[in-house]
Structure formats: structure tokens, C-alpha cells
Design a protein around this nucleic acid. Sequence first.
RNA 1: GCCCGGGUGGCGGAAUUGGCAGACGCGCAGGACUCAAAAUCCUGUAAUCGUAAGAUUGUGUGGGUUCAACUCCCACCUCGGGCACCA
Length: 826
Amino acid sequence: MNLNFPKIEKKWRTVWEKEGIYKTKDKVKGKKNFYHLVMFPYPSGDLHIGHWYNFAPADIFARFKRMNGFNVMSPMGFDAFGLPAENAAIKKGTHPRIWTFRNIKTMTKQLKNMGAVYDWSREVITAEPSYYKWTQWIFMKLFNAGLAYRKKASANWCPKCHTVLANEQVVDGRCERCETEVIQREIEQWLFKITDYAERLLKDLENLDWPEKTKIMQKNWIGKSEGSIIKFKVKSLKLKVDEIEVFTTRLDTIYGCAYVVVAPEHQIISNLKSKILNLKEVEKYIKKTKGKLERDRLMEDKQKTGVELKGIKAINPFNKTEIPVFVADYVLGGYGTGAVMAVPAHDERDFEFAKKYKLPIKQSIESKLPITNYQLPIIEDGILIDSAKYTGMKSDDARKAMAEWLEQNKLGHRQTNYKLRDWLISRQRYWGSPIPLVFCEHCAKKIKNLKTSEFKNFTKGELLNPGWFAVSEKDLPVKLPDVKKYLPTEEGKSPLAHSEKFIKTKCPKCGGFARRETDTMDTFVCSSWYYLRYADPKNSKHFADSEKLKKWLPVDMYIGGAEHTVLHLLYSRFFTKALFDMKLLNFSEPFSILRHQGMILGPDGQKMSKSKGNVIDPDDLVKKFGVDSVRIYLAFMGPYDQGGLWQLNGIVGVRRFLQKIWTIKFKLRTENKELAILLNKTIKKVGEDIKEFKFNTAVSSLMILLGETEKSKEISKNNFETLLKLLAPFAPYLSEEVWRNVLKNKKSIHLERWPKYNPKTIIAEKFDLIIQVNGKFRDKISVSMGIEKDTAQKLALKSEKIKNFINNQSIKKTIFVPGKLINIVI
RNA sequence: GCCCGGGUGGCGGAAUUGGCAGACGCGCAGGACUCAAAAUCCUGUAAUCGUAAGAUUGUGUGGGUUCAACUCCCACCUCGGGCACCA
């Protein structure tokens, strides 16, 4: 009899829904809550095999937890706002709202088919006003706490998407979404002060159960470096004294400092304009570098360029030497002080520059081979030479001593810098949550001339951004108007800027005329807190009830792709910490345990995408093999975090496996001892494997158990039920069909407890002792468990095979590993 | 360039963390059932030599440590991911 998968799938889906077995209560007596979360998808249109690869094994884990007595919440929702959705909608000529909600409908249907334990009553859709009201509310909190600020500065601009992008969204100098080359553009924008949290974001990584790789990536992205600021006095011909501050991590090499380099955008150039003798040349250079894209600065020809500021000298505070000052674009304006001290002998970049412009190279760290001019620099720490009173010191000690000297003489101080930049969150696009801010010209003037005593009447954010106010709580949400003109514009303004009706409003402070911010929020803002909303998705008074938050959060198990490491995963950590500081949360890390799934590539080895035509549709597979087969095949394919090329090679094997489970039920008979032992071992193995996300080997041990069951041609009802329970997380439909329809159980198998194994049964009385001669496997004999070395050796030497190999030679020694092997060395 | 992670049969992949390499599945070959095919079942399946028993080689390459190495150490090749003038 063949299995009719579509029929049983439909049947049980309806029954489960009716019985509500996947509805999550906030509290169940005697059960610990477990918050199991997969990263929610954006409504791209169709579910593809990559979604399934992410969600299906994750669901196996959730089901396993349920069966182990946890009150599991496994919610699902949609990351519905944002560029990708909007771009796709525009391409199709559809309004983003229509396009998005249509896709959500089809995807929900597909997701429901997957047989997962999602509690759909908790669904969250970020583009719904009931959700983004709270995105805006949190924005308001961040703003008032002084964590949001407006700034006109050079930003990454995607000419195709007509919007600015965060640093994290620029990949290889291109827009993360449409792969257009990003240019720099001066534009007013909103940023979150994520840099205020750099140290905590770094330090708290330590205690997270996250993949090491992910932690390292975040660590590198935050990019902490400890060093010193040194003040170089600047001398011009007219003897007026100014200063250049440089940042260095290699203070110990200061005696090798040959010159100072400033970035093209550095203040000192305009400050000392009148004293620069070659001003024309300098300005020409600066103009040239400004035109270059940041990426080109690097890629162009790898050649460093720069111009000396003639007539200007800097004085090294340590040895009072006068050294030249250069402007060069290999120094970044946005990092440190925008100026560096150049030590060609001990820094690769300075070395290259010095080589090109024939500048002196002075060694100050000892090396085995003398650095003759224009060989390689010595960049490692070492012993100082030619460094006055610091000569002979180790780099480490010298840095300390020198920093102290700087501080005592007020010539500098220790300093820690981070690579992390503030998070740019405004987008000049339609399909996003409006930023709930208004600007009042009148109040702006007032705030700018405020007396200190009046500061207390304003929030930190209002003082930081004169004239800007958050929309008051009662007026939230600021609804995204249903405008006809939603296409992005080239002038760098949001489409909302054309809607007078939207813009005009009242100032919440003075009641006078004010205008709304027209930019929308980066979609990553919406997804930085969605995991909180699942705890209480329908709440209209608060983003989530604090008691419910306490019950569920932080997320116990978070599963998703590694591509979000420096985006979503970093932003969410920032949000959690900021809300924690405002006492709105009682935890400061959102995701206790994190696991990644690998990426499934198309059969051609390329990333799956509609344009490449290599997308695999799970619906086709489901039709052909059934949901359970697809679930198990995805689990069985290989290690979960590895991914790989999509190929269908093994799925028939899985289908056969399920068919056999279906037929074996006709063999129910009596107990079989050996099978019982294997069953106990399998309970242990499958459980351990699921815990470690080793779904592939868990499936394989189920297959072994089935094979042995078939061979023995008999299985007791009890043991068969146990086998079904082990299978239940993997194959929810078939296991239920057999459980209820064949074995006539009344309650769902998915409400059963995970079987316990008897540790005593799996301890064997005998084992195969491996006999090696000179480390090579030669024979094995069955011996009793507690066998001692002497007995083992005697038995081993009795073996004919072993006798042949030893061939009467004398035995030098034997190595005995209890319970495993004996190795005879001749 | 720097930082991670890989490289095991025809294919996807196992290997209790130093102890029988190739579990499990696919594929392939032979056989059974069948008029035939599909499905199903049984047997075999790393390579080389051998009719066979068996022997030798074998986990990217070269070296090393060890009674014993896919596993540890050194050097290199190669693929994937991340960062990229951060001083």
C-alpha cells in the first residue's frame, strides 16, 4: 500500500489547527518557557528551498524541545518594509503595499504547509500600523535619550535606489541590494549613536553562546584599538603656533617618526591656508581626491599619493625634531583624528609612501637584519633602539612609559578608538516606517539661545537637535500615507516630501506651525526589536507587556543566516542595550544562543536568484515526495551550518525510508532483546544529535534502527511507539498518521514526551577488542567488558592471524586501551 | 595583504575528538520476482594485484611528533566566507 502524502497532510493540518495544539500559552504549569526563533523572512514572493532549509531543521529542534517538556514559543512573521520589497514592487509596476501583502498571503500558505509548530496567532508584520506604531515609539525613546542625531555629511548614496545606505549595507563599494556602485553624497540624515555602545557590544560578546566565527566578525567590525593621541606643535614661517593631534597604536616607534600626514578633509589645511606656500598644488590635490570614490582610493593603482604642505613643519614632542607635513588620501578623515605620524621603518603604508617620495627612513626598533633603505619595514614589536632614554625597552613597556610622559607634560593622552561608525537610519524612500519627528523653526531659534538653567525643560535629543521634536505618544503611529507617487526621486528627497498634507503639522512644544520629517526608517530598525513583539503581539498600550517580556525573553535559541552578522545581529544588540538602559527591558542581550544555517546554492553553484533562473521551488518537491520527505532530506543532506549545492540525489532514499515505516506496522509482535538495546542507543543518539544541530546523523541513526527492525521482522507495539516518537519531530505528518490512525491513539503524537532511554540496557557485556600489530588493525575478538591487559594479551596472541604477523619475533611492548584495543609492537 | 572555515569513494557525507577510515543515503553492477517494465527484495561496491584466501596503498601536497594521525605540529597548494590603507 502506497502512502498518500497530500491526503494525510491536509487531514492532519486541519485537525491540528482545530485542536490548537501549536497555540502557545504564556505560562504552562510545570513547564519551562523556551523561546525558539528563526529570523523572519522578507516577503520576496515565493518561499524557496533556502527558506525550507532554514526553517525545517529549526522546526525539528523546536519540536524536540516541546517533547522534552518545554513550553516552546516558535513564532513566525514578515520583515515587510524596506528596499527589497519596494524595488521588486516598482519593477512589477505594483504599489509596494499591494505587492507586499499579496506575497505575505502566498508565503503564509506555503509556510503553513511545512508542518511547523508556528503559532500563527502571534504573527508579526512590520508594515502594519499596529506594529510600526511601536517602532516609532522606540525611535522616540531613543531620540529623547539623545541617541539619535541629525547630521549633514558625506554618505553612501545608491544612484539606482535613490537613497543613502548604512556602512553595513555597502558591500564591495556596491549597494547590498541592487549592486549598483555607491557614491558619496552630502546629505542631511539621521543617525543612531551605536558608537556609544561600542565597548559594551564588544565586551558582552564574551558570554554569548554564538558561533565563534560570528563573534570574531562582530569583534572585527567594532574594531577596537588602544593607542595614544600625540600633539604635534606646528610651526609656520610666520611663527604662529598651532597643533596637529595624531592617533597611533605604535607610540613606541615615535623616534622613527619621519613626517606627519593629514587626511585631505583635515581642518588644519583651512586653518593654515595663508601659511601654505604651495596652496594651489595642495588644493588641486584635495579636489582630485574628493572626486574619487572611497573604493577607488584603494583600488585605483594601489599607489599612494600625497603633497607636502610647504612652509609648515611639525615638531616631534619627544625629540623636538622638525618634520614635514603631508596631505595624503591614504589617511582616512573619519577615523581617529584624521592625522597620523608616519614611521616608514615600522609601518608598511608609511614605508611605501616614503619609498615613493624618497623620504628618510629611520629605524627605532631593533631587527636582526639591518633595514637598509627601502627594504621591508619591521612591523612587529621589539626592543627600542636610538630612542633616547627609552632605548633598550620592550615595545610594550615603552608605550606605557611614553604615554605617561605625554600625559604628565600635557602633550597627549591614551585613547581608544573603534572602527564602528554610527548607524545611518534615514532613507529617502517610500516603503518604510515614517520617522516620527517634526521640525519647528520657531523652537529651533529658541533652543539655540537657551540658558543652561532652561536645559531641564528639554530632552537630551531636543537639545542635541534644536527644533526637532518627537511626535507625542498619543499621536502615534505617524501613518505612512497611501500616496500615488511612491517612486524614489533623484534629488535626494523622500517621495513623502511631495505630500503637503503629510508634511504640515503642529509643533508639539509650542503649537505653532511645524513640518514633518519625510524620510523613512531603514528596515533594519523595524527588525531590531521584532523578537520583543512576539511576546505580546496584540498589545495596543505598550510595545510588549513587561511581565510577558520577562516570561519569554531573551530568545533562547535564534536561528538564521550568517549574512546578518554585522547588520541585524549587531543592531538588535544595540537596541536591546539601549532599551535596557532606559529600564524598559531587564536583560541586555537579545539572543542567548545563536546558530546559523548554511546557504543552499543553485545546482550551478551560484547563489539562487530569480534572475539566474536557478531557484528551486519547494512546492514541486512537496508534490512529488511529500512534506515529510523534504523535511528529512534537508536535515539529512549534510551539516546544517554548511549548506552547499542543491542536488536531489538522496531524496528517494528518504522517501523509501518513510514508506518502510509505513509498512513495518504490519509486523507488530513481541519483544526482541537486541532490538531493544539498539532502540535505547538510538534514543540517546538522536537526542544528543538534535541538541547539537547534527540532524544528518540523527536521521542516519533512525535509518539504522529501521533497518534492524526490518531484519528482526518483529517489534513490540511499545517499541514501535517509541520509534515513532523519535521520528515525530522529523516527520510530523506520517508519525501522526501511524500514531492515531493505525495505532488508534487518541491524542496527538506531538503532545507526547520524548522517550527516555535506560542507561543500563545500553551497556554491553561484550565488545570487539581490536588487535593491532605495530599500530595496524589485524584482527578483532569478542571479549567481556571488564577485560584486563594480561588476559587481553593472552587472548590476542592465541589468534592465528596475529601469530602469523608476529612470526615468532620478540614483543617489544604492548599498549592496551581498556574497552577498545590492544596494540602489539614488535 | 589580514582574520575565519573547509579539502575524505562516482556523488551527499560519517568517524565516540589520537584508536577498525568510508557509517547512513544516492548512484552503479549482478541476482530474485515479472511475458516485460516500474516498484520491491537480496548480494556486491575506495584503489591496485590476485580465481580466491589475502596483501599493499589510501583522508589536498611535502615533512614531523606518536605504539597508533582524517584527527596534533611545521611548511605549502587549493576552495569558500569576512575585512580591507582603521595608523
